[in-house]
Design a protein around this nucleic acid. Structure first.
Length: 310
DNA sequence: CACTTGACCTGTCCGC
DNA sequence: TGCGGACAGGTCAAGT
């Protein structure tokens, strides 16, 4: 096996063009945690105020010259901890990307990332962190919904979001009983809206809501109180299995995702309903349909997931 | 209180 | 070829 190392060094793309949910953010976290710790920030450039609202006041004091000490994730939020006892708190929302590049921005011909993202910064770059070794972390965000903030590390958990956000669905001590109990607090609500509510369960977005509901044969409009406990248990297991599989596959890439080895996030190759409108259900062969639930495009098998009675 | 809608943005795609 | 509109969907705020 010959490794063409001419392009393997110095480029790592942590990129998701689709919709970063828990598995995508976790994949980005894993990649960053292998690269960033120990790097020292030399310079910060930003060109969109809302992408980095408190940059002007705090960057010089607490970001420049700070050393990265670790990278964490909670729900869909990334935390880059710094030696100044501050943390960069980052939400990618829908189109945010964190792209690391070594000092040498050149890519060898044929590197998959070369065709995905060209020279950075580009027109979607909102923040450019330069490290003292000449490498960069680019925060790109086409739609400008994402943001990063510099917050004292001990104050991060005081943020409103972290006070309200629900438990991590993959944590070891999160039981089927916890899951059912939290959902049932919203007994009269449609179950998909509840899954998407970050204060109920952390990290679930549109893709994994649709996939997990299909796995448990639950219609997204079903009221929680009408779903038998056994099916809530199926949903718990389905959701955990799906999130775990997606993390293994490097997340979902609506278009492309590559990491240091040029691997794409391939979870959508395994998806049963998401983006499969008009294709046969993998369980019963009925064609998958797309509707609108809780304001989102929603994919269901109309045979497996029976609509609730009015 | 529960639920829906609008705002935040830009790029893409579809119909005319 | 261009133009208007729908759509993509995470989260918060405002409205019903």
């Amino acid at each position: 096996m010959i490794c063409n190392c001419s392009y393997a060094v110095g480029a790592l793309i942590l990129y998701n063009s689709g919709m970063p949910e828990l598995p995508e953010v976790e994949t980005v976290r894993t990649g960053l945690s292998e690269i960033l710790p120990g790097k020292r920030v030399k310079k910060v450039d930003h060109n969109w105020e809302k992408s980095f609202p408190n940059a002007l006041t705090d960057v010089a004091k607490f970001l420049v010259d700070a050393k990265v000490t670790g990278v964490r994730r909670r729900a869909k939020v990334l935390l880059i901890d710094l030696s100044t006892n501050y943390s960069l708190v980052i939400h990618l929302k829908m189109t945010g990307q964190l792209v690391y590049r070594g000092k040498d921005q050149e890519f060898g011909a044929g590197h998959p990332s070369a065709s995905l993202i060209g020279v950075l910064p580009d027109k979607s770059t909102r923040v450019d962190l330069t490290f003292t070794d000449g490498s960069h972390l680019f925060f790109n965000d086409q739609r400008k919904f994402g943001w990063m903030r510099l917050i004292p590390t001990p104050e991060v958990q005081q943020l409103d979001f972290f006070q309200k956000v629900g438990p991590e669905p993959l944590s070891a001590d999160f039981t089927p009983e916890d899951f059912a109990k939290r959902l049932q607090r919203r007994a009269k609500s449609g179950i998909k809206a509840v899954l998407l509510d970050q204060t109920v369960i952390a990290g679930v977005g549109n893709i994994y809501a649709d996939e997990s509901l299909w796995s448990a044969k639950i219609h997204p409009l079903a009221k929680v109180q009408d779903v038998p406990t056994r099916q809530l248990s199926d949903l718990y297991k389905g959701l955990r299995d799906i999130l775990t599989l997606s993390i293994e596959k490097g997340g979902s890439s609506a278009r492309n995702y590559v990491d240091a080895e040029g691997k794409r996030g391939s979870y959508l190759d395994f998806a049963n309903v998401f983006n499969r409108t008009g294709q046969p259900c993998n369980r019963c062969g009925t064609l998958i349909i797309k509707t609108r639930v809780a304001g989102r495009g929603t994919h269901i098998c109309p045979h497996c997931q029976k609509a609730p009675l009015e």
